[in-house]
């Protein structure tokens, strides 16, 4: 692994999974980095900067994802994306948990 390549494993913990608003936030954030960022769910690996590919990943609640970034700002990208995922979970639980699910 080169110096500018980072990888983390995360679990999707918000009840509605990575879709709609969370997916948009994730893709938008990924697009702010120069690094190439990929997300893997088991055998499927997709581009974190594509909303289509991220939706096809079917990252429902409980899914374990591997996020990999390569490029000059790879480290920062990984840290920010992890922070966002934590943020999404805490937003959901501080609002109303699954009560907000009606927005699907």
């Amino acid at each position: 692994m080169s110096e500018s390549s980072y990888e983390i494993e995360v679990e999707v913990r918000n009840p509605e999974g990575l879709h709609m608003r969370p997916a948009m936030q994730f893709v938008d954030l990924a697009n702010t980095f120069d690094a190439e960022i990929s997300v893997s769910n088991q055998d499927t690996t997709v581009d974190a900067k594509s909303i289509m590919q991220m939706t096809m990943l079917a990252a429902t609640c409980g899914t374990r994802l591997t996020i990999r970034a390569e490029g000059v700002d790879a480290r920062k990208a990984i840290d920010s994306l992890q922070e966002l995922l934590d943020q999404i979970v805490s937003d959901v639980s501080s609002q109303s948990g699954v009560g907000q699910k009606d927005d699907g």
Partner: peptide, 18 residues
Amino acid sequence: YGGSEPTEDDHYHAYAET
């Protein structure tokens, strides 16, 4: 609608909000 079996907290949050 949950994508996986609801956790105790999923239930609790829904009931508490109501």
